[in-house]
């Protein structure tokens, strides 16, 4: 960990001011940032501690939805009565991630900004275009079991490792951002994370000095909500594949099918065409395959992670079959 100056921000303006500097970062829960600072993957010269600037409330919105403070912890969010009753897919996704100790400290804003677990990204003595633009990608032709099969580029095949954002994507949540100039902008969570393309160092759309203030959920969406995470241990492991699903059935046919996928790409994967293909169809293996065909249309493995393609298809079958049963 390099030396840095540490400042406690009292209000968001303090934080904005400090983090407008390219070499400064905001620290909230710190569970990901300090991990990376110890490895010198992150080397900020200044840290603004934003834990005491507020933005940790979970409250009802005017349209009956829920506003979740960026600085509320993952635990506070998952155990909130309204999250449990109205957005179970979100509670389930959060509870499937990390450990209780980490969720007790990790914040929602930080979780959205969680960086990849790619082995080459976290090892500063290996090439990585995300960490050091132009140094190459160690994972391509390296150890790539965890890596992306959708939307990767020849610059980077890393995945976004989180669970919470996958559920937020299925829920079509909005991310509220305080800009460096003092105004606010809102970005759908589905557009918050970036694909690597030629700018793999960019995880998401945040600019210097911008801070996430809240995430809003739409009015309760009902339906059968499932978060299914396939992993190598029964707990405390990152997803090989995960699916957040909000499903409704009417007269034996899908009437709603909002799905988002984790573990497959540099961002939670969402494809509107999947819902279109499912709605109005009966829950049969053929229907599930059609949805999987759309999901995996452009899928490409890198050897070690080839299995994710059939695994995603099979997990989708399991989730849709289960959801259709529950929703019927």
């Amino acid at each position: 960990m390099r030396p840095f100056s540490y400042t406690k921000a009292r209000v968001i303006e303090d934080a904005r001011q400090i983090t407008a500097d390219e070499s400064a970062m905001a620290i909230a829960g710190g569970t990901n940032l300090l991990d990376l600072m110890k490895l010198q993957v992150e080397t900020p010269h200044k840290l603004a501690d934003i834990n005491r600037i507020g933005f940790d409330e979970i409250k009802k919105t005017a349209d009956g939805g829920l506003s979740i403070g960026a600085l509320a912890t993952n635990t506070a969010t998952a155990v909130h009565p309204r999250v449990r009753s109205d957005y179970p897919v979100l509670a389930r996704a959060i509870l499937s991630g990390a450990t209780q100790q980490l969720r007790n400290k990790a914040t929602n804003g930080g979780n959205l900004c969680q960086r990849t677990r790619c082995f080459y990204f976290t090892n500063i003595d290996q090439p990585c275009n995300k960490r050091e633009p132009g140094s190459g990608c160690g994972a391509i032709d390296g150890i790539a079991k965890l890596h992306a099969v959708l939307g990767a580029s020849d610059q980077c095949i890393a995945t976004y490792p989180g669970d919470m954002a996958v559920a937020l994507s299925a829920l079509d949540a909005q991310v509220h951002i305080a800009t460096a100039g003092g105004s606010e902008r809102t970005v759908p969570v589905r557009d918050f994370h970036c694909l690597p393309g030629d700018t793999p160092w960019r995880d998401n759309v945040l600019e210097d000095g911008e801070i996430i203030t809240a995430i809003t959920l739409p009015a309760p969406v009902g339906g059968t909500q499932i978060y299914r995470k396939v992993r190598e241990r029964s707990s405390y492991a990152f997803a090989l594949v995960s699916i957040a699903a909000i499903v409704e059935m009417k007269d034996g046919l899908f009437s709603r099918a909002d799905l988002a996928f984790g573990g497959l790409a540099h961002k939670p994967w969402h494809d509107l065409r999947i819902a279109e293909a499912l709605i109005g169809q009966p829950p049969t293996a053929q229907t599930f395959d059609k949805a999987a065909d759309i999901l995996l249309e452009i899928a490409r493995g890198y050897g070690e992670n080839d299995f994710k393609i059939p695994l995603a298809r099979r997990t989708l079958h399991a989730v849709l079959e289960h959801a259709a049963e529950e929703a019927a």
Partner: peptide
Amino acid sequence: LEFDPRDGHLVNCDLAEYHVPVNRD
């Protein structure tokens, strides 16, 4: 253990990615 096929370094060199059984296993 996963070793890089080019320089032979141990890639999953921590307790998050080298999976010793957890309590739930």
